[in-house]
Design a binder for these strands. Sequence first.
RNA 1: GGGGGUGUAGCUCAAUUUGGUUAGAGCACCGGCCUGUCACGCCGGUGGUUGCGGGUUCGAGUCCCGUCGCUCCCGCCA
Length: 593
Amino acid sequence: MKRTHHCGELRSSDAGTRVVLNGWVHRRRDLGGLIFIDLRDREGITQLVVDPAATAAEQVNTAQLLHDEWVIAARGTVRQRPGTMVNPQLATGEIEVVVEALDVLNRAAPMPFHLDDTTVAEDIRLRYRYLEIRRSAIARNLRLRHRVAKLVRDFLDALGFVEIETPILSKSTPEGARDYLVPSRVHPGAFYALPQAPQQYKQLLMVAGIERYFQIARCFRDEDLRADRQPEFTQVDIEMSFVDQADVLSVSERMLAHIAREILDVEVPTPFPRLSYTEAMNRYGSDKPDVRFGLELADLSGALQKSSFRVFRRVLDTGGCVKAISPQGLSTASRRTLDAWAGEVAGFGAKGLASLRVETDGSVGGQAAKFLSEDEKRDILGITAAAPGDLILIVADTPKVVHAALGHLRRVIARDQGLISPDRFAFVWVVDFPLLEFDDENNRYVAVHHPFTSPRIEDVPFLDSTPEKVRAQAYDVVLNGVEIGGGSIRIHDPGMQARMFERLGISAEESEDRFGHLLTALKLGAPPHGGIALGFDRLVMLLAGAESIRDVIAFPKTTRAACLMTGSPAPVDAHQLEELHIRCTTGVDADSQ
RNA sequence: GGGGGUGUAGCUCAAUUUGGUUAGAGCACCGGCCUGUCACGCCGGUGGUUGCGGGUUCGAGUCCCGUCGCUCCCGCCA
């Protein structure tokens, strides 16, 4: 029985048509004589009626055997339902199919969990991921993901971009995230690395004269997971020749606005707002600010420079800062709420959360008021622009801790107070990132973005004297407080690239060993170039309104980087290890060796 | 590596507060009844290593120690 229609498409205008439907038994209601079957396929649900008056006895017997999720084919005639029996909950609710023949294509054992129950423990759903996809929002997300991928391809194709695949078996580089390694059988003791990004390949494609490249590329990073981080994830990787930063930003934001328009029917104005890294940190305490709401940070350091409050004074005397956010109308927040917020900031290293209340008469009360002079209180009111009824929450610490703590707290309060309208999509560019930062642990400078990022030309003179002041031609695109992409204009001058490696403390020998192919290529006619990589999973997650990128990935891994469905990773035969010249020192294999 | 949440029947939960009879309910499953249901209904039944290991106790799902899974966050993620 070949299917003629999907389960979501029949309407009363189809009454009288003979149809064949295929699908899964969504639900069976056996009334003794009459049997109703909700038949489901990926497009919808249609009610079948097995009526002894219209259906052969043998087929009725078959219908009595059916259980949830059996796979069947049914032939019958579409019939308009009598008025009182129309089901307005169902797109096909005005009709039903009177069954004349029924084939069981496959039986199904009882389901291990209720497929419609969204509260089922995640490990059980992951073990039977195909069942979760069958009925949950995941299938809808995967189809959305497909549409976004197609929009990306069509958009970039129209602009002359060429989609090119780059190797998955790649080479380990010393900078960046921990690599996934693949042992080589034919080169004992040597390893491939899975790419953290196709970074070097795409630069080499620019040297190759491709000019406009893109790839929907799988990337691998062996770091600990989060709701928005998987060990393998997908980037929309883009690189262009003969461009400057403005060109890359323009192509990127036009593509993102196009996607928002097509997927969400939302018109996002371009160009997106630009914020410098410094401004983002100062105003939002984050390099990926959620700009859907205010609650910006106010700097109280100047006003409290001479404060007699020892907590603030000590921080300011040792190079720290004191900043505040002032949520409106929360002056009556309970002690319990304040404690909960103090707990939130404690996770970022803040030792406390001081609070002030602006009373209805404009006076300043609250837990920290007694430590402050009248002048200081007046200055704080001026800087924060807090009004009667507002609350002022203050953190004093190193800038890093203050920004992290208040940056987090403003998001928590905005979410709890409903300050975020769910249908807003606020894109923002963060630009002028520092090129380098000092790594205390290794006692050297490391690249904030990556070692191929070009400094701003006017800052190059400071590369040796004050490296942390050099700004990069690097940019991140942020959507609703989630970093969805980043890129840079690359170094195309071999001398500058060598100087960067030197600045990063990578010796000439090591840079030749690790990046020799790139340095050589830069000497052989490399055009100026730059690009961007968009986090495809995160983008689709936000478009889908999902809370984790697991919800937009067909077969995701757990926070321990395991696949509960297939059981990967798993031990392998001693024979396989031997071929690969590998011996395990710990773990499940070690004992047998 | 660190902190939080969580784990009782195939699934979702109750019993844990204050240790005390045979660990209950709904759904699923099995058997029976039912011709207009759409979460169909009604009657009956099966089903438990309370994640795992150890300890305290006359007695542990409940208290203690360890450990494992899932999850959220910090570190980490050029």
